[in-house]
């Protein structure tokens, strides 16, 4: 069954066409990667799906419901969580407080003005559990902006997961990481998203081919091909358009 389905999606920025007739299916439980050279429209596609922009044409279906044009907070409540390519945490808040924000949202605690949040045991326990899973227990009380780059990126991913979304969308979670850090981050993601549906944008081909169940190649705003890692690797069009270029 398809968890997410995109049909004939177009998008432009004041006349500059960025997405052309994009069709995409993300099956429940699969790890789906989107790859493509810079400027292919990957992040724009993410932004359209998560409600940053309203597309002029096309449909986005999530769990059988049309969610085209929904606002980001509605989509988050429906079960779509995302991370950002450029780390977008609450910089002055501690790692713990960052994660807690997502936990509060998951529990539907939005306008509670009568309880001390530090004394809400369940919230604290769940937040600590998430911190433990991303190995940030020792950094619990450190403001996000002071975390090391790798840890900050882990926090970014963990925030997306903290609301326990059915669909996790990660926008280049390993951007700017060294080879080792990337390796570590991928293991982390693999572990955290166990049993969840994931849509991921990724640059590192090794990562993509080892992590993804299926891959969609985006090129100049169009879908070039979709298939298993094996199929994509052998696809001549993809090789010509994309893989050939990045071979360096």
């Amino acid at each position: 069954m398809n968890l997410l389905e995109i049909r004939g999606l177009y998008h432009d920025f004041s006349g500059l066409q960025v997405l052309f007739d994009v069709n995409l299916e993300v099956k429940e439980g699969e790890r789906h990667a989107i790859i493509g050279p810079n400027g292919a429209g990957k992040t724009t596609l993410f932004n359209v799906i998560t409600g940053s922009y309203r597309p002029p044409r096309g449909q986005i279906i999530f769990k059988g419901n049309d969610i085209t044009g929904c606002k980001p907070h509605q989509l988050a409540r429906l079960g779509i969580g995302r991370s950002f390519q450029i780390t977008s945490s609450f910089s002055k808040l501690t790692a713990f407080q960052n994660i807690r924000m997502g936990i509060l949202s998951k529990k539907g605690i939005r306008f509670n003005l009568v309880r001390n949040v530090d004394k809400m045991k369940e919230v604290t326990a769940e937040t600590d559990e998430m911190l433990r899973r991303i190995n940030l227990e020792t950094e619990r009380e450190i403001p996000a902006e002071l975390l090391s780059y790798g840890k900050h990126r882990s926090l970014e991913v963990a925030m997306a997961l903290s609301t326990e979304p059915e669909l996790v969308m990660l926008d280049e979670p390993t951007a700017g990481m060294s080879k080792e850090e990337t390796h570590y981050a991928i293991e982390l993601i693999r572990r955290l998203t166990e049993g969840r549906t994931m849509l991921i944008i990724e640059h590192d081909m090794d990562v993509v081919f080892s992590l993804a169940d299926r891959i969609t190649v985006l090129h100049l705003g169009r879908v070039l091909a979709t298939g298993s890692p094996q199929e994509i690797r052998e696809n001549q069009q993809v090789k010509d358009a994309y893989l050939g270029e990045t071979e360096d």
Partner: peptide, 22 residues
């Protein structure tokens, strides 16, 4: 000190992320 207060500080630091968290 309440949960609402913590969401508030989230808005101060990063209003967009607050929306994406629901």
């Amino acid at each position: 000190k309440t949960p609402f207060g913590s969401i508030q500080t989230g808005i101060r630091d990063n209003p967009r992320r607050v929306e994406y968290l629901g």
